[in-house]
Design a protein around this nucleic acid. Structure first.
Lengths: 186, 186
DNA sequence: TAAAAACTTTTTTTACAATAAAAGTTTCCA
DNA sequence: TGGAAACTTTTATTGTAAAAAAAGTTTTTA
């Protein structure tokens, strides 16, 4: 059943955000009150489950991204801004502090994840280059911008300093994008 | 002899940048062609040596910081910009990717280090608040700016993506500060 | 006097067996 | 049929003794 697959993958994401990679197949079956047999009927093994979940997790964001790119009512710089905020929507579901755990135990899954994040940047990169060519924003290496965004997000997620202020994670993200986009304007 | 102390502490910084915390007292004595006895005449034990080295490493930056603050020819926003770049001068000597190693093995040294970095931000924070009050820059929580700067620097240091471009670490740092300061301007 | 080297003591790493936990399979039952 | 639980097999964790490495001290040497 197609819905079962989805429920299982939702449970995987849920467990991951709770416990990092330290969750078991039993945890998932208990959370959903299904038998492990049902999981193994849908997925050959844990690896395949994780692979499918990465694809599943990124499909939503890919869709949103496509919408932004296709939206002709937005100007180039606004599109870029929205695309960058679109990325963190992913990161919000995940939790970057725990991604390093995947790298060690499931290197293949990590590589797939890294590829997807990389390819998400691909579209943003194109628009950034276009905007630079049109003289709308400063000419700066795209990797610099990428590292600033990613570094900031990771810090937001791993530090408790923002919690002390009454700025939400959401607000911080938007504030960060504002500063960077505004700072890039010519 | 005072010069000997300094030479030893320079060797500690040098070894740290080469090997992280995985260097020995023998490594230091060999690098300087001195006997371990000489080191232990200057410093009671390895802990004391590390404590002294943290102080030593920060004294230069503190001095530079004081100069910037005292320089009346600089306007407020320029001062902030220079102060933030002043901070990375530290981080450049150190190497953030290896700081986490200190945390595990020498927690007391790490705490001292963290305190110094924190207090370095203290001055920058004051000026940022002042500039916000004067309406020179946007009102944004200071921790947000701090996390953006620190997150970017850590990423610059830990990623090889910048190496692929022909942007040096120094240039990246200045580019990053430019974007953030420009982005904060009202 | 201080470097070099030899030395003792403490700390870290390694290796490996015992144990526990989790993956994956099978059986039973509503 | 599919959940619950019992089961086997594989993987990960833990404890510990031996070995190695590093801290810190003493002796030798120049």
């Amino acid at each position: 059943m197609q819905e079962t697959r989805q429920q299982i993958m939702d449970a995987v994401i849920n467990q991951f955000n709770k416990k990092g990679m330290k969750f078991t197949m039993d945890d998932i079956s208990k959370e959903l009150h299904i038998s492990k047999k049902t999981i193994y009927k849908e997925f050959y093994d844990k690896d395949e489950l994780f692979f499918a979940t990465v694809d599943y997790g990124f499909s939503a964001i890919k869709q949103k991204e496509a919408e932004i790119i296709a939206d002709d009512s937005l100007n180039l710089v606004t599109k870029i801004s929205k695309l960058i905020v679109c990325l963190p929507d992913n990161y919000k579901n995940i939790d970057f502090r725990m991604v390093y755990q995947i790298k060690e135990k499931y290197p293949k899954v990590y590589m797939k994840l890294a590829e997807r994040i990389e390819s998400d940047w691909g579209e943003t990169e194109k628009l950034l280059n276009k905007a630079m060519d049109q003289g709308l924003i400063k000419k700066v290496p795209v990797p610099l911008i990428k590292l600033m965004v990613e570094g900031s997000i990771e810090k937001f997620l791993s530090s408790d300093e923002l919690v002390k202020t009454d700025f939400s994670y959401e607000q911080s993200l938007n504030g960060m994008i504002d500063i960077i986009i505004n700072g890039l304007r010519t």
